[in-house]
Simulated assay, not measured.
Amino acid sequence: MVDKDIAVPVVLFLCVTVGIVYIVSLLVNTRQRIKMLQVCGSKELVESVIQADTYRYQMSALRWGVLALMEAIAFGIIQAMGWTEINPGVVALLLGAFGLGSLLVFLLGRRFG
């Protein structure tokens, strides 16, 4: 078992670090967009970049939503079957759910994209 006196500060440090990296990436992306708007005179180009970013964010949300749903179903099956140990069947079920979720995202992306 992990000592709480060690785990809590480590997890807190990791969370703060990830937050800082996320904020910096947001600032860099915002700065990049501002420069693009200042330099680029073409309204169509700016709109196409914004539409592409919106589509990418939507597909990312779809991907993580479907993958989380498929993994939740797999964990539900594992719980319902009463499996308490990690064995090849459990790993196969989890990997299969991830693969099936990825295929589902691909098909949904092609249909709605």
Rank of each mutant, 00 (worst) to 15 (best):
F75E: 04
S48G: 03
F75D: 02
L27I: 09
F106A: 13
V24S: 08
Y55G: 11
L45Q: 08
N29R: 09
I6Y: 04
L95W: 05
L107R: 11
I20W: 00
L107H: 07
V105P: 05
R63W: 09
W83S: 10
L94R: 03
E47D: 14
L26C: 10
V2Q: 08
A80R: 10
N87Y: 02
Q38E: 11
F106D: 07
I20P: 07
L27R: 08
V24K: 06
A68M: 10
M59I: 07
Q32S: 15
L95R: 01
I6G: 06
W83R: 04
V10M: 01
D5C: 10
T84I: 13
V16A: 01
A72I: 07
G19K: 03
V16H: 02
A72E: 05
E85W: 05
L107W: 09
V10G: 03
N87R: 04
M36K: 09
E47L: 14
V91M: 00
L26Q: 05
A74K: 03
G99C: 04
A80L: 10
T17S: 11
Y55T: 15
F13V: 09
V91R: 03
L93G: 02
L95P: 08
S48Q: 14
V2I: 15
R110A: 12
I77E: 03
G82A: 00
Y22V: 13
S102L: 08
F13A: 11
V28P: 08
R111D: 02
V90I: 01
A97R: 00
N87C: 05
K35W: 06
F13R: 07
G101N: 00
I78V: 01
Q32N: 09
L108V: 07
G82R: 05
G76H: 00
L108Q: 05
V24M: 05
I86G: 09
L103I: 07
L95Y: 01
A97V: 00
R31A: 15
L103M: 12
Q38S: 12
V39W: 03
F112C: 06
T54R: 13
L104N: 05
L104G: 11
V28R: 11
I77F: 01
L37V: 13
G65P: 08
S25C: 06
L108I: 13
I73G: 02
C40R: 08
Y57W: 12
L67A: 02
L27Q: 09
S102Q: 07
V21P: 12
M81V: 14
M59G: 06
A97N: 00
Q51T: 08
I73L: 07
V2T: 14
L94C: 04
G89C: 04
I78N: 03
F112N: 06
V28C: 08
G96H: 04
Q58A: 10
V91P: 04
K43S: 13
L67R: 03
M70K: 06
D3I: 12
V8S: 06
T30E: 11
V105N: 02
D53C: 10
E47A: 13
A7V: 09
